Amino acid sequence: MESGRSYATAVSQDLVTRPTSRIKLRPHCISFRTATLLNREGIWDLLDKIKFSTTKLQGISERKGNLLEATCKTRTDVLELQEKLLKVECVYAVHLFVTDKTTVAIGWTPIPLENDRLTRYLEENYGKVHAIKRRKDKRGMDTGLRIVVMAKDVLKENPIPSYISVDGYQLYVKYNGQKETCKYCNETGHKIASCPRREADFPAPTSHSKVGDNQQPQVENVCHSKTISKEVLVDSLEDQNVTDQKLPANAAPDKDLLQSRNKPKKRDRTSPSSNQPRPKTVSLSKKQYAVTCKVCKRDGLVLDDTTTFFCLSCKETQIVMKPCCGDSEDRWLELSTAKISKCACCAEDLLRLPCCKEFIPECKQPDALFDCPQ
């Protein structure tokens, strides 16, 4: 290697001078993807499923991932294979290397909207539809995206705008070579944010300040270092009027007065009194109790009148329990499906009544009957 020449430079120069050959036109080739990775036996099963004869194929190559490339013997065979692959739900991203058709993606489509209705609308307004199918996810659920195959010549003569309306539903359209249109006026060259027709239909509100008979217009106070004196500046700040007095050459305005004028006024803070409105939230003024979640063991706080507690960590709704003996300030949580609990103060068993769902102390009675306190 020559001195002073790096390895990257040498490689790049060799690549430039190296002769390259590339297949530019592949009219008999088609590529497609499958929902799952297929082996050779799976590929033959797919061809048998769509009833496409292997005698029309030169071969199928496996590319990276689930991408497959098939080469047919004639142009008619590859067009037939494309038409059959578009009807298979587990096959998507079907593309011809040299094609006279375009795949049109239509989104925001309602699930109940039938393909026949969408096909009829497109053929009435733009041109013939060769194929249409619903795009589904890995679990087989409809995603609301429709894939339509139309001829390039048809779309060139009658281009579909970026937004169409079918049965009162607004849908968006996207395909290769499409000129994006405005969502408001369907014109090219701009978007809805800068649409001139929308600005004309909905002009921006303009505020014009009107001066009444008894009002005087405000005069903006402009301080010049050699034109306004200190006294004149004070008068202008109080009365909003500037006099014609002039400042001597050796005088200067008061800087502290100018700074106090520009500072915002502070609101006077007064102590709360009985005639002031109460705050919107009273949780800080009430007593709080510490509790622990029964599922994730995270700590939380509840108020005295709180009956249920929702844990944001485990997404469980639990019951706030109170002691059955005395006025103890202990609180604990119990699952909403629990039928028995234990008092945190006296360790007495608490049973849940089926009528009112309240927990009461267990009664030591021979007949095991409980009277609902409510």
Results as ranks from 00 to 15, higher is better:
residue 284 L to I: 12
residue 216 Q to V: 09
residue 208 H to S: 13
residue 275 N to D: 11
residue 255 K to F: 11
residue 251 A to C: 10
residue 272 P to I: 15
residue 206 T to W: 01
residue 303 L to S: 06
residue 286 K to I: 03
residue 216 Q to I: 13
residue 231 E to Y: 08
residue 284 L to Y: 09
residue 227 T to P: 04
residue 229 S to D: 07
residue 288 Q to F: 01
residue 215 Q to R: 12
residue 245 Q to E: 06
residue 307 T to P: 08
residue 300 G to R: 03
residue 249 A to M: 08
residue 252 A to C: 09
residue 266 K to F: 12
residue 264 P to S: 13
residue 296 C to W: 07
residue 211 V to M: 12
residue 314 C to I: 02
residue 314 C to M: 02
residue 264 P to F: 10
residue 246 K to W: 03
residue 264 P to R: 13
residue 243 T to W: 02
residue 248 P to S: 04
residue 236 S to Y: 03
residue 256 D to S: 12
residue 243 T to Y: 06
residue 262 N to G: 05
residue 232 V to S: 07
residue 320 V to M: 07
residue 271 S to L: 14
residue 210 K to E: 14
residue 237 L to H: 01
residue 287 K to N: 05
residue 300 G to S: 06
residue 281 T to D: 15
residue 255 K to G: 03
residue 251 A to R: 06
residue 290 A to I: 13
residue 321 M to S: 04
residue 319 I to D: 03
residue 263 K to L: 15
residue 299 D to F: 10
residue 223 C to H: 04
residue 258 L to E: 02
residue 211 V to N: 11
residue 232 V to F: 04
residue 289 Y to D: 03
residue 294 K to T: 09
residue 240 Q to K: 07
residue 317 T to L: 15
residue 220 E to Y: 01
residue 233 L to K: 04
residue 268 D to Q: 11
residue 292 T to E: 13
residue 258 L to A: 07
residue 237 L to P: 01
residue 236 S to N: 05
residue 303 L to Q: 08
residue 298 R to Q: 02
residue 241 N to R: 14
residue 311 C to A: 00
residue 214 N to W: 03
residue 246 K to L: 09
residue 303 L to T: 09
residue 306 T to R: 00
residue 286 K to A: 04
residue 220 E to V: 06
residue 254 D to T: 07
residue 220 E to I: 07
residue 211 V to K: 15
residue 261 R to W: 15
residue 224 H to W: 11
residue 216 Q to W: 02
residue 268 D to P: 13
residue 214 N to E: 07
residue 297 K to N: 14
residue 307 T to D: 08
residue 281 T to S: 15
residue 223 C to R: 01
residue 295 V to I: 11
residue 278 R to P: 13
residue 310 F to P: 07
residue 260 S to L: 15
residue 307 T to M: 08
residue 291 V to N: 00
